[in-house]
Design a protein around this nucleic acid. Structure first.
Lengths: 359, 359
DNA sequence: GGCACTATCCGAAACGTTTCGGGTGATTTA
DNA sequence: TAAATCACCCGAAACGTTTCGGATAGTGCC
């Protein structure tokens, strides 16, 4: 083995330049073809040979040149996420968690995940077109999908694989990982209705996002299914921050208003605002108003640490990165769409913030 | 929006596959060689021809294949930044501003800037080695340089171009953009000394960072230069947050302690903490203690909005991205090192937070 | 007219990888 | 024993670009 290694380019592998397939082939006494096949797990190569090749490649610190690979096979193993720069992006830890989570998952699959931040004033579509045209990226992850998302339209039109965190349209023809937002909010509303609530408020995200629509649909379906007066369904939209919860409660419980007896919050941050406002207004939870939220475990807001402990639907966001990466990888491998469309699980955790309405 | 999307994808040009140099050559009635030379601004091509080629390329929506280019010329036009995932990274808007700023600057130079977030527990060097070995990136931007930065050592050893935001060592042999931290803090201390202060505190960043060392050096040089008792120089280190300013003041002004008469803050956030603590302790600024800070204009902390208005040394961080990108680009073009080593300007802005010490 | 020079162009090779079609010898099948 | 099968391997082509060396005309000079 030693003489074999020393007969290669040089004792020390990377003397400024990387080892190539040719170097490995020479050192292993094989053809470039066979080395490539051995390393890529093809069938017609002797198991012993394969191991030997792998060993040689390791000692030579061989790393396949992505550009060369991309050129011939059309695949570089790099995928990306494009986000517009927005000041609020940085504020919550969410964004970095997304990036780090995806990065981790993709590198576990031997792929490189990469982020491109577009200028704030820059239209986003041309950015994708550049990235596609340059041909450096194999596929994309799309977050925060909109109702008729132009990015998805572009990528689908160009035949570029992508995976969406969420779903676009009712019969998506794209890879995705999503949670069943409609079902979750149907259940949340159902729980409250079962307790006897008739006027229920939903503090939802900004309109246009697909998950916001889905949540609204589930909520309204539950209300309608119980034969309730549609006026009893109060929906407010906005960026899902503490402020939304705060101003909504102040507003809904203003003197003379027909206040709801229960509130469904889009996330725990909104719920925090609701708690603050309720406290300030002297409203007891759940005595005067029941509160329930969807908990995606973002940041450090633990729903169990609320007082009273917050009832929630539970679906940690951090469980998304693995299936997302998996779905994109499957798409790249040309797997049937079905295998790249996953709806994640959720569960209800009922604590102390919901009760029957005061009569 | 819908018509826009449909017109961009399916006009004619990209029937699933991008236009290549060969296509442009055929359409222009020239050889591939000449088209390449025309597009890349080489000398021996007729000006008229060049224009014609450019026009054809435009209508064909030609985009050079980065992988192919990289393969032969060794350059892909992609550069990157690698950061370890850290929870605090996201918290301040700083990080996203860095990324967005660099992204903007590089794309203005026709390059792609890309971010790679490494797992928190992952050693950083292998990440660079992967990225280098794969050969997808031409160069790197290094931020937060340490005293003997192993990343710089690795990249320099491999001969990979990189630019540092800051300087490593006293005679840096790498491209960099930096501000003259030593000079700035020499001046800050000098200003206070000139006012008559003899006991001065420096609230500095975490040790190990090169800029922290430089600032310390400048500060001590000013103190020593004025022939002051070295005991009068009080240095405290820590993550430069409001908390550092707060606890430092509480500590320094504890009963029985030999309190300083002036404080130099590493940034305006630290100064904010100092103001808070001073207020709580009933210390007047600048009556009981002078405060001065370095202001890099991060986030939304305006030094002029402090009360009393904060005296500062002024060097906006956002002025760094352009020279940083420029220096890396220069390095990639093989420019002499001198042209890729830039020290940015700074200025003093004296407001109301500094005065002669009470006798 | 021969020479050097310039302006403009082109063919072919190269980069490192994958893949296609084929090849060799050994083993099984009829 | 001849034919078919199998396990393992290889050469050559291709991907899209840049670059090296040369080619062709036209120009000015002696």
């Amino acid at each position: 083995m030693a003489p074999l290694a020393s007969e290669s380019v040089s004792d020390h592998p990377a003397e400024g330049t990387m080892a190539t397939l040719k170097d490995v082939a020479k050192a292993a006494g094989l053809s470039v073809t066979q080395v490539s096949r051995a390393l890529n797990g093809h069938s017609d190569v002797n198991p012993d040979t394969r191991e030997r090749v792998k060993a040689v490649a390791r000692t030579l610190r061989y790393q396949p040149n992505l550009s060369a690979r991309k050129l011939v096979s059309g695949r570089s193993g790099m995928v990306g996420l494009v986000v517009p720069q927005a000041p609020d992006l940085a504020s919550d830890g969410l964004f970095m968690e997304v990036v780090a989570g995806l990065s981790t998952q993709f590198s576990a699959r031997g792929m490189q995940f990469v982020l491109h931040v577009a200028r704030q004033d820059e239209p986003i579509l041309p950015v994708y077109q550049r990235l596609i045209g340059h041909g450096a990226l194999d596929g994309f992850v799309l977050t925060d999908p909109q109702e008729d998302d132009p990015r998805a339209a572009l990528l689908a039109g160009e035949g570029i694989p992508f995976v969406v965190h969420g779903r676009i349209g009712s019969e998506p023809r794209h890879a995705y990982f999503d949670i069943d937002n409609e079902c979750i909010f149907f259940d949340l509303a159902g729980h409250l209705i079962g307790l006897g609530h008739r006027r229920i408020a939903l503090l939802n995200g900004v309109p246009g996002r697909t998950y916001v629509t889905a949540r609204r649909t589930g909520f309204l379906r539950a209300m309608a299914g119980a034969g309730l007066d549609p006026d009893g369904a109060i929906i407010r939209n906005g960026e899902m921050t503490e402020a939304l919860g705060l101003v909504s409660v102040v507003d809904l419980f203003a003197p003379g208003a027909a206040a709801p007896t229960a509130i469904i919050c889009g996330n725990t941050r909104v719920a925090k605002g609701v708690y603050h406002a309720a406290n300030a207004l002297g409203l007891a939870i759940p005595g005067d108003v029941s509160v329930i939220a969807h908990d995606d475990h973002l940041a450090t807001l633990k729903s169990a640490a609320f007082f009273p402990a917050l009832s929630v639907s539970d679906a940690p966001l951090r469980d998304s990165w693995q299936p997302l990466a998996g779905c994109l990888a499957a798409s790249l491998d040309g797997a049937p769409l079905k295998q790249a469309q996953i709806v994640g699980p959720h569960r209800m955790i009922l604590r102390d913030s919901t009760a029957a309405p005061r009569v």
